[in-house]
Amino acid sequence: MAEPPMERAKSQGMLELAGSVQIRHVDAGSCNGCEVEIASVFGPVYDAERYGARLVASPRHADALLVTGPVTRNMEMALRRTYEAVPEPRMVIALGDCARDCGVFAGAYGVVGAVGDVVPVDVEVTGCPPPPEAIIEALRGMTGR
């Protein structure tokens, strides 16, 4: 049974998404802990798709980017280009502590910075890794379902 719909976030872009958010996942240098949680979010137990969130295979099809990990030097340009490739209105979710403020990797030689240093971030999810409930909550905040 799905819970009653959550309060929708108030930003302009989110209103246009009309209850359905197509998400492109970008691993900018994660330890893959966050990916495990994402996998369970979209698995049969938490099933984020029933709230209108869906993973897609290309940024061209996406409304939002779901970025994990600190942005490493090798992934910086790729992240920028992926962001460029998403049609507007577009949003960025920084998932996990690494994505928010580099977390345990802060100051490492291969790290450029947090996701917010490279592309504008709209939604943040805390935790290392964030539990599936927190991710679901953030996604429902975007889809409004």
């Binding site: 290309s58 940024p59 061209r60 340009m77 790729a78 992240l79 280009r81 992926t82 460029e84 490739a85 049609p87 507007e88």
Partner: peptide
């Protein structure tokens, strides 16, 4: 319309 780069998987 917005001009955008050809999508190259971000890989150059």
């Amino acid at each position: 319309r917005r001009p955008a780069r050809l999508w190259d998987c971000g890989a150059g």
